[in-house]
Nucleic acid binder design. Sequence first.
DNA 1: CGGGATCCGATTAGATACTG
DNA 2: CAGTATCTAATCGGATCCCG
Lengths: 134, 134
Amino acid sequence: MSYEELVFDVFARNCTSRPVMETVAGRWGLLTMAALRDGTHRFNELRRRVDGVSEKMLSQTLHALERDGLVVREVRSAIPPRVEYSLTDPGRRIAAKLTELIELLEAEMPGITLAQARYDTAKDPADVPQQPQR
Amino acid sequence: MSYEELVFDVFARNCTSRPVMETVAGRWGLLTMAALRDGTHRFNELRRRVDGVSEKMLSQTLHALERDGLVVREVRSAIPPRVEYSLTDPGRRIAAKLTELIELLEAEMPGITLAQARYDTAKDPADVPQQPQR
DNA sequence: CGGGATCCGATTAGATACTG
DNA sequence: CAGTATCTAATCGGATCCCG
């Protein structure tokens, strides 16, 4: 398939951009990218910043981001081992946008919290739609 | 707990903004919000636009977004039933940002695709990190 | 048309233990 | 330190059936 034929429309099922979108905007991808915005970080530094990630998930996320060319992984052979992660140029552009999203959402949270409370008291407390609760 | 004490830092585990972030930036939330940007839509219209959603997932997503006060659901009693979904004001602000993210990602996709190809041929084809593949 | 209820397999994610 | 491997529990998500 020729290069020009590739279409990257997220709305289309089976579009190649969907899995990328999910790593990038997913729970851990989003936070990891944002955490890397202020420079290079080591694995356990990132673990501390992205509160709640398991080693496994952080490792998976970083590998996927590296594959997408958004993060670079640099190994400095030494004892103790030192592995550093940083954003590439495209990574920086995407992370900037993700940060804007985070900040907007945080700014809207007071209103959202109120809306949730209103919704929950109006409805039967039993059947509140479940949001992802991980 | 008083209103001022609430902190909405996504980086903190157990922060109330995390589940919201996940509905909004999650696979279906993102596309649903973006699809609603150009106006009111009915359930099955949305299903067609958000290619690949099941009824169940679309329904869940819409309810969660409604609970967060980002989407309004209006029922017009009639035969056949007519239910319309549209964005609220906060919903519109967030959807705008999500659309920016989508457009940025789509613009970066050529580079990302190349990076993936390079990564996959460099590494053993067996152990390519898995992205969500749904 | 617009869903809710249920069933069930496939994934995901976390805990834990282990390694270079 | 920086992970990988393994096991298990939770969840996701599609299919199906049903109803107003």
